[in-house]
């Protein structure tokens, strides 16, 4: 049972903590229930939007870790061509993904899901959310990868669960704040 206890010992605290973050997100959504129920399409896009920002963060941290290990980027906070390429490429991926999400969600959503909102504004809200979150997460990923790498730790192990859970917490909150600005 050594392996069993080792897994529990190493995982339980982070899983409890991240679930608590998820509960905070749920409490916020419950608080915004009337807003969400008037535009149900936003409930439909929360899981894919969470997944999208979570995936982009995972790709970023995984790439930064590899770049640091193979020496493509120095362990210093400074601009580089590699960094610029990744920022632009993954931002484009995020924008294209969200455009795809906007179109497909409008097509498959039940009638009246977007009743009080113009589809162009809806797509713009999703785009705005992903651009803001991506920019913030890019900076966090880069700085934390360098910090952890300098301290001899593998950024993958710490940052992937932390960032995906933070994305689950922050994405619906930012989405609803931007929605409230536009309606």
């Amino acid at each position: 049972m050594e392996y069993f206890y080792k897994i529990i010992k190493e995982s339980i605290v982070i899983v409890l903590l991240t679930s608590f973050l998820g509960l905070i997100s749920g409490i916020y959504l419950s608080d915004q229930y009337y807003l969400l129920s008037s535009i149900p399409i936003f409930i439909m896009v929360i899981p894919p939007l969470n997944a999208c920002i979570g995936d982009l963060s995972t790709i970023l941290i995984s790439k930064f870790t590899t770049y640091l290990y193979i020496g493509s980027i120095p362990p210093k906070i400074q601009k580089s061509e590699t960094l610029k390429n990744n920022f632009i490429a993954l931002l484009v991926t995020g924008i294209l993904s969200v455009l795809f999400l906007s179109i497909i969600s409008i097509i498959i959503s039940p009638p009246n899901s977007l009743s009080i909102l113009n589809p162009v504004i809806y797509a713009f809200i999703l785009l705005f959310t992903i651009v803001i979150l991506f920019a913030v997460f890019f900076v966090i990923c880069f700085i934390s990868a360098i910090f952890l790498f300098k301290h001899g730790k593998d950024p993958n192990n710490i940052m992937i669960p932390t960032l995906t859970s933070t994305a689950d917490l922050i994405t619906p909150i930012i989405l609803l704040i931007i929605l409230q600005i536009f309606i």
Binding site: I14, V15, L21, G22, L29, N50, L169
Partner: peptide
């Protein structure tokens, strides 16, 4: 639903982790 939604993000996070 307004009460049930409290646990949905936590369950999705738990699933991932």
């Amino acid at each position: 639903f307004s009460y049930l939604i409290i646990m949905i993000p936590a369950l999705l996070t738990l699933r991932g982790n």
